[in-house]
Design a protein around this nucleic acid. Structure first.
Length: 201
DNA sequence: AGTGCGATTGACT
DNA sequence: GTCAATCGCACTA
């Protein structure tokens, strides 16, 4: 099934502040037009890596790996995690600042059969539940690092396909530094959010 | 040039 | 709940 695509988000739609951007992105749509097909999903879980955040990849200053985080808001930062998975972020703030939002989970919308093939599973809730699974399902890898999500490219952000439910907030998953900060946002009760049941409610 | 480790996942006890 | 997989990167020397 293919649903009508909401309009592309413009840069002016995106909050500059990383934490505000993370909250804003809940309920919005991520779309990728890949050579093997189109996939899209509702963003249901994000984490902000804010300015001066010791847990953020930008904390060490600009390097070859993290340079996309230093682009003005609305660019893709894609990095390789644990030697196994890709993770997708949206850069935040103004140019040369260094902050971003990790997109951790999607509710699949378009291209579900393609996602199943890419992921090797038929379980809808597991297709994009978790940052590594999400990039696998969407066909996102290093080639998309640095692309402008607000330009006329193959990867972009779109408006809500459906209004987000109540938004929950918690500590971020899988980090040790700055572990107390409430910078994870998620659609409360969504079965497409990663983590235990407690982290979804 | 070598070392330690991570914004994860899936398989296994 | 525990743990290996797997590799690029930042850091030390």
């Amino acid at each position: 099934m293919k649903s009508a695509t909401p309009r592309r988000l413009r840069r002016a739609d995106l909050p500059v502040d990383a934490a505000q951007l993370a909250r804003f992105l809940i309920g919005k749509t991520l779309v990728h037009e890949a050579p093997d097909g189109r996939t899209s999903g509702r963003i249901v879980e994000t984490e902000a890596y804010v300015v001066g955040d010791a847990a953020g990849h930008a904390y060490v200053g600009e390097t070859a790996r993290n340079r996309s985080l230093f682009l003005r808001r609305g660019h893709a930062y894609v990095y390789f995690s644990y030697g196994v998975h890709w993770c997708f972020n949206v850069s935040a703030e103004t140019a040369r600042v260094g902050a971003g939002v990790l997109v951790r989970a999607l509710e699949p919308l378009d291209g579900i059969e393609l996602m199943k093939r890419r992921r090797g599973t038929d379980r809808l809730v597991d297709l994009a539940r978790g940052p590594g699974r999400l990039t696998a399902a969407m066909g996102i890898d290093k080639r998309l690092d640095g692309v402008d999500l607000c330009a006329a490219g193959s990867l972009w952000l779109a408006a809500e396909s459906r209004r987000a439910g109540p938004i929950g907030r918690s500590v971020r998953i899988g980090i040790t530094k700055e572990a107390h900060r409430l910078l994870r946002f998620y659609e409360r009760g969504s079965v497409f959010v990663s983590g235990s049941l407690a982290l979804r409610n």
